[in-house]
């Protein structure tokens, strides 16, 4: 069981950040859905739910998602169903159940950089930026590659640029963690291939993305899918072996490319 010495609900992000960095064991509380599964020794728990960081908003050329937005809202929000080919909404649908997704938040999912995340893979294939209180605004890819430092994730911004995206996943059973997931997107001639649950966290297949972007002939999606599978690293865990994931990467990426090619 986790322990918790103090519980605070700051009124401003500044205050929240001050408290967060004032003690080594101080932690931002996300939705608390995963809290009980660990035995974390928390000093001061900083609840950021009063900071008005929740909700999905249309911000002109961007869609803004507050860190405290529940995954269920991501799933059902009309803006996220209507944009990004519904992939952002779809990506959270298989996470346990409604009553879990009503607690778990976007901020916790992204900030924790979970390897098994479905959401991260899709966000990575889109033009997503994260806004952190201290580190400021940066592309999601850069954030994922940066070392974990104490900060408060405030918002996500996804560019509403008409990028087409396809999200694919493979699960052993419906509400399990994915064996593998993939998202492929295309804006004009620029392609992005992202693969997650490898089981390491989602990453962009740079070579495959570039090759797709530079090619005028995409008759053979399998070629690019194989390229993605060969450039990424896969590991073995309870849900699948590296060998199987490598093979599945070819299939999921191929299917995603084909689906994107069909959205004209």
């Amino acid at each position: 069981m986790f322990t918790l010495k103090e519980f605070v609900q700051p009124k401003s992000v500044e205050e929240a950040y001050e408290i967060l960095i004032s003690g080594r064991n101080n932690t931002v509380l996300g939705g608390t859905a995963f809290l009980r599964m660990g035995s974390k020794k928390i000093g001061t728990a900083v609840d950021i739910s009063k900071l008005e960081l929740n909700g999905v908003k249309d911000a002109g050329s961007l869609i803004e998602i507050g860190a405290c937005t529940a995954l269920r809202e991501v799933e059902t929000h009309p803006l996220l169903i209507d944009h990004f080919d519904g992939a952002v909404s779809d990506s959270v649908k298989n996470i346990i159940g409604v009553q879990f997704r009503n607690i778990a938040t976007v901020g916790a999912s992204v900030f924790s950089k979970y390897g098994f995340s479905d959401l991260l893979t899709v966000l990575l294939a889109l033009d997503t930026e994260v806004e952190l209180f201290k580190a400021g605004r940066l592309p999601l890819d850069a954030f994922l590659k940066s070392p974990c430092e104490k900060d408060i994730l405030m918002r996500l911004f996804i560019k509403k640029n008409g990028r087409n995206v396809s999200y694919q996943y493979l699960r052993n059973s419906a509400s399990d963690y994915p064996v593998l997931n993939a998202a492929v997107s295309k804006l004009g001639s620029q392609w992005t291939v992202a693969v997650g649950a490898r089981p390491q966290r989602a990453a962009i297949a740079m070579k495959a993305s570039e090759a797709l972007s530079n090619s005028s002939n995409r008759e053979n999606p399998e070629y690019y899918a194989n390229m993605a599978a060969d450039e990424l690293r896969f590991g073995t865990n309870a849900r699948g072996t590296a060998q199987y994931r490598h093979a599945m990467c070819k299939v999921l990426v191929k299917r995603a490319i084909m689906e994107v090619l069909q959205c004209r």
Partner: peptide, 8 residues
């Protein structure tokens, strides 16, 4: 009978 067993 898992997908991986069938596939392999």
């Amino acid at each position: 009978i898992t997908p991986e067993k069938v596939f392999l």
